[in-house]
Structures are given as C-alpha cells and as structure tokens.
Simulated scan of single mutants.
Amino acid sequence: MKTSRTKFVILFLVFSFAFLFGTTLLLDQPPESLVGSASQVTWKATLSTVLSPVKTILIGPLLPFIKYLHQDPDTPPPFFLAMFAFYWTILAIIIYYLVRKIKHT
C-alpha cells in the first residue's frame, strides 16, 4: 500500500485530533492529565491508564507550553490547536520516514 506523505500527515492529524477530543470527552479530563485520577469511575481510570502512553507521546512534549499559555486566561483556543497541529505534523513526518525506511530494508 502506497500512501503519500501529504495524505499520511493529514490522516495523522485527523486521527490525533479525534483521539484528543474523544478521550477528553469520554474520560472527562483535560488534555494535560495523562494518568487516571482516584476520583474517576474504575473503568475510566483503567482506560486512562491504558491510553496514557499514547497521550504521553501526543501531548507530553507540549505540556510546558500548555502550562505557560494557561497563565494568561485570554489565550485563544485556535493557538492551542495550531500548536498541536505543528507538533503532530513534525511527528507524522518522522513516523512516515521511519516506517518507509523500515519497509524498504
């Protein structure tokens, strides 16, 4: 299956945003929380713990920037979306080239 780099990056961005919003809505947690809290229902805490490695990769490196931007209560939400999109685009390109390199060896 041949997938172009542009298509891969777009699909990666779509699925990353869907994952972020889905886990935020399903688990009732802010994006900064990576591990389940004690006040959650058992299944939510378990699901949050299982998904925490993926959230750590997708959100972990951006946590210092998120905390810095939350100091100003008037930070526009599109700024966060643009920050996620920029980081995930770089991550998708790296993953694309790694998979391509592994596939050709």
Rank of each mutant, 00 (worst) to 15 (best):
L91D: 02
T3E: 12
M83R: 02
W43A: 06
R100M: 09
L58D: 02
L27I: 13
L62F: 13
K2E: 08
F19G: 07
D28M: 10
V35E: 06
A85I: 07
L69C: 11
Q40L: 07
I57L: 15
F79V: 12
L63T: 10
A45H: 09
T42K: 09
L20C: 02
I102M: 09
S37R: 12
L20K: 10
K2D: 13
T3I: 15
S39Y: 05
L63Y: 11
F21A: 09
I102V: 05
T42R: 10
P30S: 11
V54W: 13
L20R: 08
R5Y: 13
K67C: 02
F19T: 12
I10P: 10
I66V: 06
I93T: 02
T24I: 04
P76G: 00
F19E: 02
I90D: 06
S48F: 00
L62Q: 10
A18D: 03
I10K: 09
P78E: 08
V41Y: 03
F80W: 07
F17N: 10
L20V: 07
L58R: 05
G22H: 06
W43P: 00
Y97F: 14
P77M: 00
L20T: 05
A92I: 02
L20Y: 11
V50L: 14
S4W: 08
H70I: 01
L20P: 01
L58F: 10
R100L: 12
M1V: 09
V50S: 01
T6M: 12
S48Q: 09
L69V: 04
F12K: 04
L91F: 08
K2V: 07
L11N: 14
L13A: 06
T6R: 14
L26A: 15
V35L: 11
L26T: 14
T42Q: 10
F8D: 00
A38S: 14
T24F: 01
Y87G: 09
S48E: 04
L34Q: 10
M1L: 13
H104P: 01
Q29R: 15
F80P: 00
P64R: 00
K103Q: 05
Y68C: 12
I57Q: 08
V50E: 01
T89I: 03
Q40M: 15
V50I: 15
I102P: 00
D72V: 01
S4C: 12
L63H: 12
K7W: 12
L25P: 00
T42C: 01
K103Y: 09
W43I: 11
F21E: 04
G22M: 05
L26G: 06
V9T: 15
K44S: 07
I10L: 15
F12H: 06
T56M: 13
L25A: 13
K44I: 05
W88Q: 09
L62H: 10
